[in-house]
């Protein structure tokens, strides 16, 4: 209501107008911060503060949320660095990332190219089927998969036995196969989302480009090689980096599928942190925080790398 009044004053007298204008702007600033308050408070409390607090916690000895913190300096970091199982969890995380990301990105691109063709029958049905696992609850899928890959009665092994391929593989119970099985389940679970990314990317290529090339006599394979793939390159960087980032967040799947075992063969860093903070008989929160800080820095650098990549893509796109 008041803004309407100030609007009239603008017409009446100049000095008055300036004052009411600054008052209106002041009120606007107030409204702006009022609308920001819920985000500033909640996000500050539950994301920004934890990021900072982790650093403080990593310097204390702290055995449970109700107990006292005792400053120990860099001792936690020294202990984390000396723990072979920490390095193991780091290795598992990296290995998982390196296996899962190319598999997911490349396979889903192939499927997206085929699904994008208007000549393919049932393409909507196919898209639905391949996307379905994405919407399902990871923790529940993890539990179900534990049974699907059961060495004795799970359907995966029954299938292998029916076709006489093998006498049964202990997919999740054997430390040499557990990580690969988890990686397979992960690709299955999140494959659909990269497929949708690729389909969205493919739809940015206008039909005219294809038509012009076809006029010039280009075949499907040459269209793919000289038009589709080069035009998709900027998306490749973004999609790969998004996939890298999300492959670091596998807590739900790994905890429900294997719990990090057998013999720590699937223990990713998040499970390592969880084990020390929440499932140890005497929680080592300071120690777990030190591991979390190292992990957080690692994720940060992957993210930074990602932003730089996207920035360079945008610049290249703006230049062309």
């Amino acid at each position: 209501m008041s803004s309407a009044i100030t609007g009239h004053q603008d017409l009446l007298s100049a000095p008055d107008a300036r004052r009411s204008r600054s008052r209106r702007l002041g009120r606007q600033q107030l409204w702006i911060w009022l609308l920001l308050t819920p985000t500033v408070v909640l996000y500050g409390l539950y994301t920004v503060y934890p990021v900072i607090a982790s650093y403080w916690y990593s310097f204390v000895e702290w055995n449970g949320f109700e107990s006292q913190k005792r400053f120990v300096g860099l001792q936690n970091f020294r202990d984390v660095f000396a723990d072979d199982l920490f390095w193991n969890s780091f290795k598992v995380t990296l290995l998982f990332m390196v296996v899962v990301v190319p598999l997911k990105v490349i396979l889903s691109l192939l499927l997206a190219i085929v699904l994008n063709s208007p000549k393919l029958p049932f393409s909507t049905l196919l898209r639905t089927a391949y996307f379905l696992p994405v919407v399902t609850t990871t923790a529940i899928v993890g539990v179900v998969m534990q049974f699907v890959f059961d060495p004795a009665s799970g359907p995966a092994n029954q299938l292998l036995r029916t076709f006489g391929v093998s006498e049964g593989v202990n997919f999740l119970g054997d430390s040499s196969t557990a990580l690969w099985t988890a990686a397979g389940v992960y690709v299955w679970k999140w494959f659909g989302i990269t497929m949708i990314y690729w389909l969205a990317a493919l739809q940015t290529i206008p039909d005219e480009v294809y038509e012009a090339a076809r006029m010039d006599g280009a075949g499907a394979l040459r269209l793919l090689r000289h038009i589709t793939l080069p035009l998709l390159r900027p998306f490749l960087i973004i999609i790969t980096l998004l996939s890298l980032e999300s492959s670091l967040r596998v807590f739900d799947l790994v905890l429900t599928l294997t719990g990090g075992g057998p013999f720590y063969s699937t223990e990713v860093v998040e499970i390592y942190i969880y084990r020390w903070a929440f499932s140890a008989t005497i929680p080592q929160l300071g120690y777990a925080s030190a591991a979390a800080v190292i992990f957080g820095l690692f994720v940060f650098f992957v993210g930074l790398f990602q932003l730089l990549g996207i920035r360079s893509v945008q610049r290249a796109r703006a230049a062309s």
């Binding site: 994301t47 982790s54 942190i273 969880y274 929160l285 979390a292 993210g303």
Partner: peptide, 13 residues
Amino acid sequence: TLFVPTGYTIIPV
């Protein structure tokens, strides 16, 4: 903080 993983912030939370 776009990509901060839950495993990192869970203890302070």
